[in-house]
Design a protein around this nucleic acid. Structure first.
Length: 419
RNA sequence: GGAGAGGUGACCGAGUUGGCUUAAGGUGCACGCCUGCUAAGCGUGUGUAGGGGAAACCUUACCCAGGGUUCGAAUCCCUGCCUCUCCGCCA
């Protein structure tokens, strides 16, 4: 969340951010609540101070076996007043806190201002697109020819959007995950985590999914748990309510998890094959860094994600999201879009974001800097990568004229593990 | 799921007949002094968050969390969460 003190002294900057990000939040009501909270807090403090002082006197008199009737009757009234003010204070504070959670992060100055994805900025293209001397099929045809997917039975068991990978397909999916994990571990210096796939409300609020995106998540009502939409959630919350030392930073984690998304409101859009799913696999990178280094860390993590696409020899482009396409919690985001050679379009396979101190404030993750000062650290995360669209790009780019499939060289060792 | 025990400051650990504790004592840490030697001793300081103040500083809250009783709660009551032990069930 944004520091209330910052909002108080820079309301116009925050207002602009809300508009640029297409969010809705009434800053005037929030500021009024803040004003009221401080006033009530002041009154409360005064009365409490009085109560504490007189309580000392009462205690002394009681010990000396003196009469404290005057003090007691005064305190009865003060206690009453305190109770009333405290109730009001609690209410205003709760309202203020709830409102603060609806204020989006401020976009970084380098982020292009724009209403929607049409105004995203394509920064560069990398690699070369596969050229065919035959009519290429799209990924679903390639998958079916090679018996790699069974989407109808996935739909029977769970519903559409819950894929079944079969035989060679399952093995290829597993190889992708393993390759990416090992790559980040061995070449990029990340540490691996395996984390819970169902998390509580507080955790979901910490990274910013709640309260805004409750409708987009699978909820287990019995236990009030949510299935994670990304490993970002459990991994970033690893240090919630903790204080680290500057000596502990930076920290880099990588985690593979399935991801669950209800995709409410996007039915009928890009539904063929693996394009949009309710359950998919992803290898996620998360970093905890000192504030001064987060901008460089974002570029570095972008490279980490790109290295995977390069290792697979795939063509892709790098996009800087405009304010309107930026997520609620993000300060700056790069998307990597891989070229789907068969269907002829770019598909998002990675989103690499710097959240600044936004998530650290929500999740209460702090550190002591070299001067011993308590500060919020910065968090970043990036997909490295999500598998479904990566699989699409590989199937379409590596298909052969006879309908069979080749695969990237780097994956072959992972397909040939011996027991 | 059943029974019991417990959750105190960076750490250990007192405090549970409610009020000279708005948390003793110790360890650690920081600074200073002394001692001339990988040590010991002495002194001072040592949390987070909010409010006020130019500052020194003052003040409020926080003893797992949230309610309640009371003039007053770390201490009493209720609910929840977590940890440990035993039993049951189970991959």
């Amino acid at each position: 969340m944004i520091d209330i003190k910052f909002i108080r002294s820079n309301p116009d900057i925050v207002r602009k951010a809300i508009v640029d990000k297409n969010e809705k939040a009434d800053l005037d009501i929030l500021l009024a609540a803040d004003e009221q909270r401080r006033k009530l807090q002041y009154d409360f403090d005064q009365l409490k101070a009085r109560q504490n002082a007189v309580s000392q006197i009462i205690a002394q008199k009681k010990r000396a076996k003196e009469d404290a009737g005057t003090e007691l009757s005064e305190m009865t009234m003060v206690a009453d007043e305190i109770k009333t003010i405290q109730a009001a204070l609690n209410e205003v504070s709760a309202d203020l806190d709830a409102r603060l959670l609806t204020i989006p992060n401020l976009p970084h100055a380098s982020v292009p201002v724009g209403r929607d994805e049409a105004l995203n900025e394509v920064l560069r293209h990398e690699g070369t697109a596969r050229k065919f001397d035959f009519e290429p099929k799209d990924h679903l045809d390639v998958a079916n020819t090679n018996r790699m997917l069974d989407l109808p039975r996935g739909a029977k068991i769970s519903g559409s959007g819950f894929p079944i990978y079969t035989g060679f397909g399952a093995k290829l999916e597993r190889a992708l995950i393993n390759f990416m994990l090992e790559y980040h571990l061995q070449k990029h210096g990340y540490s691996e985590l395996m984390v819970p796939l169902a998390v509580n409300r507080k955790t979901m609020t910490g990274t910013g999914q709640l309260p805004k995106l409750e409708e987009d998540m699978y909820h287990i009502g019995e236990d009030d748990l949510f299935l994670i939409p990304t490993a970002e959630v459990p991994v970033t919350n690893l240090y919630a309510d903790e204080v680290l030392s500057y000596k502990d930073l930076p920290q880099k984690f990588v985690a593979y998890t399935p991801c669950f998304r209800r995709e409410a409101g996007s039915y009928g859009k890009d539904t063929r094959g693996l394009q949009r799913l309710h359950q998919f696999n992803k290898v996620e990178m998360v970093r905890f860094v000192e504030p001064e280094t987060s901008e460089a860390a974002l570029e570095d993590m972008l490279n980490d994600a790109e290295d995977i696409l390069k290792a697979f020899g795939l063509h892709y482009r790098v996009v800087s999201l405009c304010t309107g396409d930026l997520s609620f919690a993000s300060q700056k985001t790069y998307d990597l879009e891989v070229w789907a050679a068969g269907s002829g379009k770019y598909l998002e396979v990675s989103s690499v974001s710097n959240f600044g101190e936004f998530q650290a404030r929500r999740a209460n993750i702090r550190y002591k800097d070299a001067e011993g000062k308590m500060r919020h650290l910065h968090t970043l995360n990036g997909s490295g990568l999500a598998t479904p669209r990566l699989m699409i790009a590989i199937l379409e780019s590596y298909q052969k004229a006879d309908g069979s499939l080749d695969i990237p060289e780097v994956l072959k060792p992972f397909m040939e593990l011996k027991v």
